[in-house]
Design a protein around this nucleic acid. Structure first.
Lengths: 226, 226
DNA sequence: GAGTGGTCTAGACCACCAA
DNA sequence: TGGTGGTCTAGACCACTCC
């Protein structure tokens, strides 16, 4: 009996209400004895279920079946080039603007920078098979750039970042907004069209790195398994 | 040196290009010797990094630093009531319609049902502090209902499902769409406004369960840590 | 075929925290 | 403060897959 079998049997007992929602299940030790496996194997299985939101584990308090399980889904955030390539289309990007400027207060605040700090403002259009797909509005902390700075007309900022500033932390937000005149023009759409927006904030180990807003052309769907 | 320390040291070596993108890193065995820990500890740390998309592991081929790391983020899909309650607002819902009908072919196809199969069509409005938040359009397989059927004017379909049909699988998709006249009316908005759409498909162990489309009022953001 | 990661075991110690 | 989950170890066997 492997840890997957343990997980299967535990979920079966939960589904069939042998272990009802909100109820305590026996300790790892006891479960291990009953199932005839090592405690580490039970631990592995129950940890997995806890990560998935099915169980709640607390030292001393024991393991409890979640009353209202919060479903957790794992999203893949792909690099745009790969996403386009995966559909068998040719990828291209166009750097629309690149200049040092003062970011909006909202952006500076989100990154934790002083409002007056100048940042590199980059606007990029990403295309699939020649058709505009994503309009990217990015503010980049110039402090993270090497000297001389990379040529962002040749390598997209996004790809330079993932290849260079490895393993930063950050957060991400998804929303729906009507296309601004600027976005509509870049994506060749009518203003007001509903756009899927991805907004990302990234910090390195020492300094804020970048804030970016991606406006996806209509038809874009972010999907995942539940 | 615990597994978190191992993970930290490994990410440091990747960040500092000691182990460059695309390159092989030493075998678990060797890393364990060098770090002076058990192989299981190394395995735990490297598995974590592989799950996060930082490493690619293959038997015999070894462990490789991902060339273009695909960021993975974990989303929490909360029950609407909890989401509203978490903001300190009172939750309410209104069942707008409930009738047996033939689902659109797209819905039947997604669930893998014959096009002619009648399903329970439910439309629900979810409110926070009296203000419309989410318009829910749901098709439910009547085969999963007990007899007599629950009173969906008293308990929301969503909550009845999570409490009853435990541990189903499914998929979920997010997109942005302009409000249909129906949605605009229900949410008290102008037609054409950009709405954040969640579309979910759920299967039980034996039969398809439900297809649901949630239209979120403007301002809704789905956020997570990267 | 052989090297690698995946898993299991038995035992141990520790950190946490509800009782 | 004792019970519980979290982690580590040393050793073992297995499954996969590249060579």
């Amino acid at each position: 009996m492997g840890w997957e079998a343990v997980r299967a049997e535990v979920t079966r007992r939960i589904r069939t209400r042998v272990w009802p929602p909100g109820g305590l299940i026996p300790s790892d030790e006891l479960v291990a004895q009953v199932f005839g496996v090592a405690r580490a194997t039970v631990n592995r299985a129950l940890k997995e279920l806890a990560d998935a939101g099915v169980l709640e584990r607390k030292r001393k308090a024991g393991t409890r079946v979640a009353a209202l399980p919060v479903r957790k889904a794992t999203l893949d955030i792909p690099v745009i080039r790969q996403e386009v390539a995966a559909r068998g289309q040719t990828y291209a990007f166009r750097l629309i603007r690149q200049e040092l400027d003062q970011p909006p207060v909202t952006v500076a605040a989100r990154l934790g920078l002083l409002a007056g700090t100048p940042m590199l403002h980059l606007q990029t259009l990403h295309l699939a098979a020649g058709v505009p797909q994503v309009y990217e509005d990015r503010w980049l902390n110039p402090a993270v750039l090497p000297k001389p700075a990379p040529d962002f007309t040749q390598i997209s900022v996004n790809e330079w970042l993932v290849a260079t500033i490895a393993f930063a932390t950050g957060d991400i937000a998804f929303s729906a907004e009507s296309a601004t005149p600027e976005e509509a023009a870049a994506l060749a759409l009518h203003p007001g069209v509903a756009l899927f927006i991805t907004e990302r904030c990234t910090w390195g180990t020492e300094a804020p790195i970048t804030w970016v807003r991606l406006a996806h052309a209509p038809g874009y769907r972010l999907t995942t398994l539940l």
